[in-house]
């Protein structure tokens, strides 16, 4: 086993899972909604990036921007359909969950109808090649993935920490009525949350499509992975999601090397179920516990 390879794969996977899980986690904690349409956002962003690469340019920056922008728009669409009409209605959590599931079904079938079942490949946005540092080899793909997602994660976290909008989102996570009393509009803040998380998913879609193809149902696996990472990290916790992303990335890399690719999901699930049996609220619950 090559430790450099495992470490690099772990960090690559962790950064993508982190993007996906953080989106789900932030939406859950600020809007109280489980966004099952994240997979649709993912697939749509892949197609958005593909369209951009077909009609506008194959420059890496342009393609990434296309994916991120499509993701933000898809996030806004999901928010407009599943959150805005429902949030003050009775039984909101269940109904919004079902609404996002309906969007997932509608969306993926529309994509299938529109683009056909044939998969599409995105251009290599980071170019082909690799860097050698001592005995370690790192392909441009992986480095690009790590740098891009780390940059977006850091920007997002800094924005959440420093800006007024970020403070508003954090306030809304804690107490929506109190937030309204300090002039936070629930709807506009919700839409900005949806667009932000959509953009994160869009970036993840472009990055992951470097190795996989763009297809109407490409979003299911990332959705499931993002969700279980968010679940293991403790829904609503940024730190927990990041730690869980690292751990699950590590497990995936180790399993792939030691046992073989088909066991990845099984070991991951065994890990998650073990975590959840010990801490039903995920790893973040663990952190809070030790802090006390």
């Amino acid at each position: 086993m090559d430790p450099y390879y495992v470490a690099l794969t772990t960090i690559t996977l962790a950064s993508i899972y982190g993007l996906l899980a953080l989106g789900i986690s932030i939406i859950w904690s600020s809007l109280g909604m489980i966004n099952m349409a994240q997979g649709f956002t993912f697939a749509l962003s892949g197609y958005g990036a593909w369209l951009v690469s077909q009609y506008i340019g194959t420059n890496g920056v342009v393609v990434v921007a296309g994916g991120v922008l499509t993701g933000a728009l898809a996030g806004a669409l999901v928010g407009g359909i599943a959150f805005i009409p429902l949030y003050d209605k009775p039984n909101f959590p269940l109904r919004s969950l079902i609404a996002t599931l309906a969007i997932a079904m509608l969306g993926s079938q529309s994509l299938l109808y529109w683009f056909g079942p044939r998969v599409k490949a995105l251009p290599k946005v980071f170019g082909v090649g690799s860097i050698h540092i001592g005995s370690a080899v790192a392909s441009y793909d992986k480095i690009g993935t790590i740098v891009c997602s780390a940059a977006l994660l850091l920007i997002t976290l800094a924005w959440m920490k420093r800006s007024r909008r970020g403070l508003e989102i954090r306030a809304m996570m804690q107490n929506p009525e109190g937030a309204a009393l300090v002039g936070v509009g629930l709807r506009s803040t919700a839409m900005s949350v949806m667009m932000m998380t959509g953009a994160m998913t869009g970036l993840a879609a472009v990055l992951l499509s470097q190795n996989f193809f763009v297809s109407p149902f490409a979003g299911t696996m990332p959705l499931v992975k993002g969700m279980v990472v968010a679940l293991a990290g403790g829904l609503g916790s940024v730190a927990g999601a990041l730690i869980a992303a690292l751990l699950i990335g590590l497990i995936e890399a180790m399993t792939a090397v030691e046992l073989g690719g088909q066991y990845v999901l099984i070991t991951q699930f065994a890990f998650i179920i073990a975590v959840l049996l010990v801490r039903p609220r995920g790893i973040a619950g663990m952190i809070e516990h030790t802090r006390e």
Binding site: I34, L97, V224, M227, I273, L276, L277
Partner: peptide
């Protein structure tokens, strides 16, 4: 059912989606 002993509501729903995919 093992995780259902500890997990509540939507947490469990999310997990079962994953189980089906698995």
């Amino acid at each position: 059912a093992l995780p259902a002993i500890r997990l509540e509501g939507f947490y469990y729903a999310l997990l079962t989606v994953g189980v089906a995919e698995l």
